[in-house]
């Protein structure tokens, strides 16, 4: 009950953010966006024909009315039809979102888990050679471009070694899933690991320095117990926050590169095609839904805080 009330209050708080995101995307993509009048007209149109098409497209309406229409589309999940394929945008999303999730989930989870593991290792040996090796490798990892990693991995595993497919997504059972998901997963883990390790190391090093860690040692706790109960459990808030806020980033930006490069029919590929062909209904839907996802994540994140830290009560959660 408390959680429900809290969620509703948070949802209300998310409204300005949603309005802002939709306003920006509306202004940039619709209001100042490409004028589609001429695409719908025959050659040498008359002034009347032009006016008719413009009113059909709603171009003659005032700014706020058009923005209102845009919001209504978003609220009813009615984004219209893709400019390039003519398919309903909702149908496209229904088909592609599961592919993207299946493609990215393993890499995302592995990137976080390995990052935490390496962060713990480095934090425990802080200042020693293990720490220096881990942080050094993290900086190297951070310095490699995602695109370069994708190209190199595809080349290595797909072309030179020939172990995995170069392109496509022909998944029908577990072996074929593993066959197609491995190289993209390796690439996304490689790219995420540098940043994740560095971030988690910094967080965990801070927790390692707490008084209660010293207390635990003074009472004979083992390293594993200390790392789990004193370090990790106390670092859950930054860990959860980072994980949660990486989700939209990975789902949109990560999938964009991986899917377009490996030719995998997910949201990222659809978005990429929409960017290159200027397919506005699709882009509007993706931007709008990402904003909704962000607000949702804000709320879930705050509820998770409560779960991980007994000192936080939902009534007065302050999100940084």
């Amino acid at each position: 009950m408390e959680i429900l009330k809290y969620t509703l209050r948070k949802l209300a708080g998310g409204i300005p953010l949603l309005l802002g995101v939709t306003l920006v995307s509306f202004v940039l993509m619709v209001y100042f966006g490409p004028d589609k009048t001429w695409e719908l007209l025959s050659k040498n149109p008359t002034a009347e024909e032009i006016a008719q098409v413009r009113s059909q497209l709603g171009y003659d309406q005032p700014f706020w009315v058009r923005y209102g229409n845009y919001l209504r589309e978003l609220a009813t999940l009615e984004f219209g039809y893709s400019d390039s394929t003519g398919e309903r945008v909702t149908t496209i999303l229904q088909r592609t979102v599961p592919v993207t999730l299946a493609l990215l989930a393993p890499g995302f989870v592995l990137g976080i888990v390995l990052g935490i593991a390496l962060g713990l290792l480095a934090a425990w040996h802080r200042g020693g050679w293990i720490d220096r090796a881990v942080t050094g490798l993290a900086v190297v990892g951070m310095s490699v471009s995602f695109l370069v990693v994708i190209i190199a991995f595809q080349l290595l595993f797909g072309v030179v070694l020939g172990w995995f497919p170069v392109r496509g997504w022909n998944v029908h059972d577990l072996p074929s899933y593993l066959h197609y998901v491995t190289v993209p997963t390796l690439a996304s883990v490689f790219v995420a690991l540098g940043y994740n390790t560095r971030f988690f190391r910094a967080v965990l090093v801070e927790e390692m320095a707490r008084d209660h860690v010293r207390t635990a040692r003074a009472f004979g706790a083992s390293p594993v117990e200390i790392l789990r109960k004193n370090v990790l459990m106390n670092a859950m808030i930054p860990i959860v926050t980072r994980t949660m806020f990486s989700i939209p980033l990975v789902v949109i930006s990560g999938s964009l590169l991986i899917e377009s490069y490996f030719g995998i029919p997910g949201v990222g590929k659809v978005t990429y095609d929409a960017i290159t062909s200027g397919d506005q209904p699709v882009l509007k839907a993706v931007i709008g839904l990402t904003a909704v996802m962000f607000v949702g994540i804000l709320i879930v994140n705050d509820i998770l805080y409560k779960f991980f830290d007994p000192r936080i009560s939902l009534g007065r959660t302050a999100l940084q």
């Binding site: 209660h212 207390t215 635990a216 003074a218 009472f219 109960k229 004193n230 459990m233 991980f308 007994p310």
Partner: peptide, 19 residues
């Protein structure tokens, strides 16, 4: 540690694990 010899610290506010 903790069995044959124990230690208590200056800062009771931060010496216990908060979670």
């Amino acid at each position: 540690r903790g069995a044959e010899m124990s230690m208590i610290f200056q800062e009771p506010m931060t010496a216990l694990n908060p979670v």
